[in-house]
Amino acid sequence: MSDRSLLSIDDLDVAGIREIVELSDAFEEVLRRPIPKVPALRGRTVANVFFEDSTRTRLSFEIAAKRLSADTVNFTASGSSLSKGESLFDTIRTLHAMGVDAFVVRHRAPGAARRVDGWVDTPVINAGDGAHEHPTQALLDLVTVHRRRGDVEGLRCVMVGDIEHSRVARSTIGAFTMMGMHVSVAAPATLLPTGIDDWPVDVVEDLDTALEKADVVYMLRMQKERIARDPVLPSLREYVARYGLTAERARRLPPEVVLMHPGPMNRGVEIAPEATEHPGAAIEEQVRNGVTVRMAVLYLALGGMP
């Protein structure tokens, strides 16, 4: 176990989040340089261990590590024949024996990153563990709101869609509320987790009413196959009508709203193509901020003398 691991957004306090936001700003300046790279992590090796498909998160961590002059190795497995726990353990111990300095772990089992942290003495960064947590996504979301709106305290966020199966929802709600934002969630009852009453959020019935007061609109990815599978859910068309950010809803949003989506988008389902053209759309900024936030997280995990 390492005290420099980042497994959950709850591993951080307000001061820790502020430190990451400020470091992220410093790295944003680095990315604008003619040579957008600093030697801070020269000689360190970061292993991206991804047991679940991911394009943007893995590439984002890899670019972040390279911008800090760290070496990277990538392990990607999908559908291993070994039982999951065993293959994860063997993979981690093997890489550890090769001299890896930090692990970035994505796995479909909740708690996987924490288990990995128990097996090694190097820092472990959780890059998504099932429907549980995705702390660097939460941090990049916070940085995105901060860069658009300055002080985030008191801002109102409406988060829309599949709350129950979303690690983004768990982590981002944690970060937003820790920094003093108000979060409301809008979703069909079947996509709200049991125990939502204990979350620090309001559940709203009517999306249009909630959007009127929103400073931040956060659309979650809707898995189309889930709608086909789940008999309690209305049809896709009805979902879009009630919970989609349609072109018509987007037109009513003021330009200063911050419109977010963790990607990849289902255009035409949770978000209309026209909505991504809204001046408040910050979806590509989220991607860019993902690099600077992950640079900050890796720098704090690996910076300094070993």
């Binding site: 400020e22 410093a26 300046e29 680095v30 030697p39 720098y299 704090l300 910076g303």
Partner: peptide
Amino acid sequence: DIAFYRDDIGTKPRAPTGPTE
């Protein structure tokens, strides 16, 4: 700011003390 270029930073990473401009 030289925080990201140091070779004598001790055991903890150091945050920049000001912007590089």
